[in-house]
């Protein structure tokens, strides 16, 4: 059964499965250890906060699969018993930053972005989103122990209806401990007043929509030993390292598809139902313009409806005025009515033709040409339903091709029938 239709085939809202949209996707990292030449790095560990720290050093080497920490580890299968970690170069410290960029391949409605760290969590970082495939970026969330200083934003600002589409800065999740295994999880709708009525909130629907996610690590946590003499071992201990980057959400299809598929070009697109079209089912498919496109809701599927052109036209367009006049029922206007029909639904015969009532209006030959006599008729246009031509004085017949009773034919084409004396 198709989730987009109930048993009798009535359309209903449907949404794709909730997935980790980052899984298996390529992540571009602005810095990866050992990428150019093998490098040393050291891992700090301590039983718990305040206990003495121990430092063990290793080599990061891109040419050795056992020692490499590529960005691919961010979105590979996350095995807690065998963590694979991407790792940046050492001590890329503010004002320098390290960026991770992930393209989702299409618009997604993002529910959360999470990062599981192999290193201490950053002192400051920002999660951005793009809605135009990386052309422009919008902040999603700021994290910092010093929101005002680092990002000129208040810490934990209250979110109101007026600013629900703005990123907030918070000092939560910025503790340096645990030194490994810390998690940052950003929930896009957390604390947003309209979240409970998401269906009717275009603002939040827009807010959670993203085609790309970018994480910018802005400042490393340190123990303050990075500037001491012989600081090299210390600096070799400060880097960003993440084992798992997740982007939880659904392929955005506006309620008109239950899954996303790869199209011929290999791009991810919605498998649109309800006569909708486009990668996000965000418009009506051709010839289905009898009412404006709308997102589906829990109560109403808002499927697109075909124009009614009585099989006489292949194209139509939407007219808002007609739609309103019809009580928001029908606004389609057929284009290029064929078979000698006319009207917004190609439902009557055009001038010079009349209805053949022995055939339905949808029949190709529903309209017959008027057959008005070149001399007896006063014009070539006949009555739409009877085919009666306009006759000159004294002339009779549907086609005005004979004189009326009491009249006889004359020699004048102007007055073809004259009264019998």
């Amino acid at each position: 059964p198709d989730p987009c239709y109930d048993e009798p085939g009535t359309p209903r809202r449907c949404i794709p499965d909730f997935v980790n949209a980052a899984f298996g996707k390529e992540v571009r990292a602005s810095s990866t250890c050992g990428h150019k030449t093998p490098s040393r790095f050291c891992v700090l560990s301590s039983a718990d906060k305040g206990a003495e720290r121990t430092r063990t050093c290793h080599t990061c080497d891109a040419s050795d699969p056992r020692k490499y920490h590529p960005p691919a580890y961010l979105t590979d299968l996350n095995n807690p018993h065998n963590l694979t970690c991407w790792q940046s170069e050492n001590f890329v410290q503010f004002p320098q930053n390290v960026t991770l960029t992930l393209s989702l391949g299409k618009k997604f409605e993002v529910t959360y972005v999470s990062l599981q760290f192999c290193s201490p969590r950053p002192e400051s970082m920002v999660i951005y989103k793009s809605m135009d495939y990386g052309k422009t970026w919008v902040p999603f969330q700021f994290y910092s122990t010093q929101c005002r200083k680092m990002y000129n934003k208040p810490n934990r600002a209250v979110i109101t209806k007026q600013n629900e589409q703005e990123a907030v800065c918070t000092d939560s999740h910025t503790d340096m401990h645990p030194l490994s295994g810390g998690l940052i999880a950003f929930s896009t709708l957390d604390g947003r007043p309209s979240a409970h009525d998401f269906d009717n909130s275009p603002v939040l629907q827009d807010w959670v929509t993203a085609t790309d996610i970018k994480v910018v690590f802005g400042r490393l946590h340190t123990f303050g030993d990075e500037n001491e003499d012989d600081s090299e071992p210390a600096r070799d201990s400060y880097f960003y390292s993440v084992s798992d980057l997740q982007v939880g959400g659904r392929c955005k299809c506006n309620g008109h598809a239950s899954r996303c598929v790869k199209d011929r070009e290999g791009s991810l697109v919605c498998d649109c139902k309800h006569n909708t079209a486009g990668p996000e089912c965000d418009r009506c498919k051709p010839f289905h313009y009898d009412r404006p496109w709308q997102r589906a809701t829990a109560r109403e599927a808002n499927e697109c409806v075909a124009c009614n052109c009585n099989l006489h036209a292949r194209r139509c367009r939407f007219n808002m005025e007609l739609y309103k006049l019809s009580g928001r029922k029908s606004g389609g206007v057929c284009l290029n009515c064929r078979h000698n029909t006319a009207g917004r639904h190609c439902h009557y015969c055009k001038e010079g033709f009349y209805r053949d009532l022995s055939k339905p209006i949808s029949h190709r030959k529903a309209c017959k040409a008027c057959d008005c006599h070149p001399v007896g008729a006063a014009g070539k246009t006949c009555n739409q339903t009877t085919g009666q031509c306009p006759c000159k004085d004294g002339v009779a017949g549907v086609m005005c091709n004979r004189c009326a009773k009491g009249y006889q034919q004359s020699r004048s084409p102007i007055a073809p029938c004259i009264k019998i004396p």
């Binding site: 002339v395 020699r411 084409p413």
Partner: peptide, 24 residues
């Protein structure tokens, strides 16, 4: 009683050449 159809050959088209149907 059905009246005969108009006979195009009977009409005098002098002065009405422009009205004369092509096939007459």
């Amino acid at each position: 009683e059905v009246m005969p159809t108009l006979d195009m050959a009977l009409f005098d088209w002098t002065d009405y050449e422009d009205m004369k149907p092509v096939d007459t």
